[in-house]
Amino acid sequence: MNPPILEGDPSDPRRKALNPGLKFLLELGPGLVFFFTTIRGAWLVGKFPILSHIGEPILIATAFFMVATALSLSVSWILTRSWPIMPLVSAIVVFVFGALALWLQDKTFAFMKPTIINSLFGITLLGGLAFGRSLLGYVFDSAFNLDAEGWRKLTFRWGLFFLFLAALNEVVWRNFSEEAWLYFKVWGTIPITLVFTLSQMPLILRHSLEDKTGKEEKAGK
C-alpha cells in the first residue's frame, strides 16, 4: 500500500515515520538557518554582494529561511512520500509572509510569522476538540499512546500553549529590539517549549495505554 499524499492518521499502517532525530533536525534546521543568516548578514553581503539586492540582513535571512523550509519539506517527502501536515501549514505561512516581506521590503511580516503559525496551530487544536477530534497525534507523530481523555486534556493544553506563544511573540517583537526578538525566537521558544513538554509528563503517564496494559498484564499473572 502506498502512503497517502498528506500525512495520515498516526494509527494508519501505511504511514511512514521519520527517525525522531532526523525529524527534529528537519523542523529545527530552517530556524537555525534564519538565526545565523541574520546574525552574519553583513558578512554574507561582504562575501556575496549580490545578496544586498534582497535587502537588509533579516530579509536575506527570510529568503534563506524559505529555501531551507522548502529543502526540509522535500527531504521529508523523499523519505516518507507524504507531506507532514503541520510543517506543511508552517511552510505555507513562511512562503506567503516571506514573499510579502521580500516584495514589500517590510520585515514586519517576518516578525508576525510565528504569531500566525502558533495561532493557527492553537485554533486548529482547540477547534478540533470542539468537533470531538484530537489532532495532537499529528504533532507528536505517535510518540505517545494515550486514552481518549488523555488526548483531550493534552490537546487542550497544547492548544492554549500555542496561543500563549503567539501572544508572547507579539509582546517581544513589538516592545523589544530586533536582536532581542531574534534571540527569543530561536533560543527562547525552544527552552519554553521543552519545559512545557516536560510539565505534561505526569498527565501523559497517567493516561498512557501502554502503562495501563503493562499493569493489567502484571495483575493477571
Score class of each variant (00 low, 15 high):
residue 25 L to Y: 13
residue 6 L to S: 01
residue 130 A to G: 10
residue 128 G to V: 06
residue 22 L to K: 09
residue 68 A to P: 00
residue 23 K to G: 14
residue 102 L to V: 06
residue 177 S to D: 10
residue 193 T to L: 02
residue 136 L to N: 03
residue 199 S to D: 06
residue 170 E to D: 13
residue 150 G to K: 02
residue 88 L to W: 04
residue 42 A to V: 14
residue 131 F to P: 03
residue 130 A to M: 13
residue 80 T to G: 03
residue 57 P to M: 00
residue 130 A to N: 10
residue 220 G to S: 13
residue 51 L to T: 15
residue 11 S to N: 15
residue 174 R to F: 14
residue 130 A to S: 14
residue 201 M to Y: 11
residue 113 K to A: 14
residue 22 L to A: 14
residue 193 T to K: 07
residue 211 D to G: 09
residue 151 W to D: 02
residue 128 G to S: 03
residue 90 S to R: 09
residue 158 W to Q: 06
residue 3 P to H: 00
residue 197 T to L: 05
residue 149 E to T: 13
residue 157 R to E: 01
residue 90 S to D: 09
residue 145 N to Y: 09
residue 143 A to L: 07
residue 54 I to F: 09
residue 64 F to V: 07
residue 63 A to H: 11
residue 162 F to I: 12
residue 15 R to K: 05
residue 31 G to I: 12
residue 205 L to M: 11
residue 167 A to Y: 11
residue 36 F to K: 05
residue 187 W to T: 03
residue 34 F to P: 05
residue 118 N to A: 08
residue 147 D to M: 01
residue 91 A to G: 14
residue 47 K to C: 12
residue 84 P to A: 02
residue 152 R to D: 15
residue 6 L to D: 01
residue 211 D to Q: 11
residue 105 Q to P: 01
residue 18 L to T: 01
residue 191 P to K: 08
residue 86 M to F: 15
residue 35 F to V: 01
residue 72 S to N: 07
residue 205 L to D: 12
residue 125 L to C: 07
residue 175 N to F: 07
residue 209 L to Q: 14
residue 64 F to G: 07
residue 180 A to L: 10
residue 114 P to L: 11
residue 17 A to T: 06
residue 185 K to E: 09
residue 108 T to D: 13
residue 119 S to C: 06
residue 131 F to T: 13
residue 162 F to Q: 10
residue 48 F to P: 03
residue 131 F to V: 12
residue 88 L to P: 05
residue 26 L to E: 04
residue 11 S to W: 05
residue 65 F to L: 14
residue 37 T to L: 12
residue 147 D to L: 02
residue 57 P to N: 07
residue 124 T to A: 05
residue 7 E to F: 04
residue 29 G to T: 15
residue 2 N to Y: 15
residue 176 F to C: 06
residue 199 S to Y: 04
residue 59 L to E: 04
residue 72 S to Y: 11
residue 207 H to E: 04
residue 153 K to G: 03
residue 15 R to W: 00
residue 189 T to I: 13
residue 145 N to Q: 11
residue 131 F to Y: 13
residue 208 S to E: 02
residue 100 L to M: 14
residue 138 Y to S: 01
residue 192 I to C: 06
residue 28 L to Y: 07
residue 147 D to I: 02
residue 15 R to T: 00
residue 43 W to F: 15
residue 27 E to W: 03
residue 26 L to I: 03
residue 22 L to F: 11
residue 206 R to M: 06
residue 122 G to Q: 07
